[in-house]
């Protein structure tokens, strides 16, 4: 149950966040025209899927809005749809090498560094795709043999 004051407050925070983000994106667009800008443009590789859950332009501008809205619904009401969930963002956008959205060329960090907006998500949320599957023990000798025989297929 979201109280009225909370709704109003989230609206305020949202407005501030959106204001900040749009201004930084706007300035980002300005920079793109100058190839010799001192701040290097972020680069990251997206390998999965052909398109995001919303059009790219919408996501650039409003991704934080989607995540914030979804976060409240998930935490307080147990609504766990995939479309705007942070877990889904990370699973899709994690770098295939590092399996993370952070790091110099990580999807989230590279752009946020460029726009000079700090991210507060990953002090609590994992930045790794499919984290629960990755935090298993390192593969032991028996496991190596199994992988050798099966070629890593299940």
């Amino acid at each position: 149950m979201l109280r009225k004051s909370q709704k109003f407050a989230s609206l305020l925070v949202l407005l501030a966040a959106v204001g900040l983000a749009t201004s930084s994106i706007a300035s980002g667009h300005g920079d793109e025209k100058h190839d010799n800008s001192r701040v290097p443009l972020p680069k990251h590789s997206i390998t999965k899927g052909d398109k995001c859950v919303e059009p790219t332009e919408v996501m650039r501008k409003s991704h934080m809005e989607f995540i914030l809205h979804h976060r409240d619904k998930t935490v307080h009401q147990g609504i766990r749809t995939k479309q705007h969930s942070l877990k889904n963002c990370v699973n899709c956008h994690a770098d295939p090498e590092t399996k993370s959205v952070l790091g110099k060329d990580g999807f989230c960090e590279s752009c946020h560094t460029y726009a000079a907006v700090s991210i507060d998500c990953f002090s609590c949320h994992t930045d790794k795709a499919n984290a629960s599957k990755q935090t298993m023990r390192p593969i032991d000798a028996i496991g190596q043999k199994v992988i050798a025989i099966t070629g890593g297929e299940k």
Partner: peptide, 9 residues
């Protein structure tokens, strides 16, 4: 701190 000032129980 901003949260403490915007969310109230």
């Amino acid at each position: 701190l901003i949260v403490a000032m915007t969310y109230y129980n």
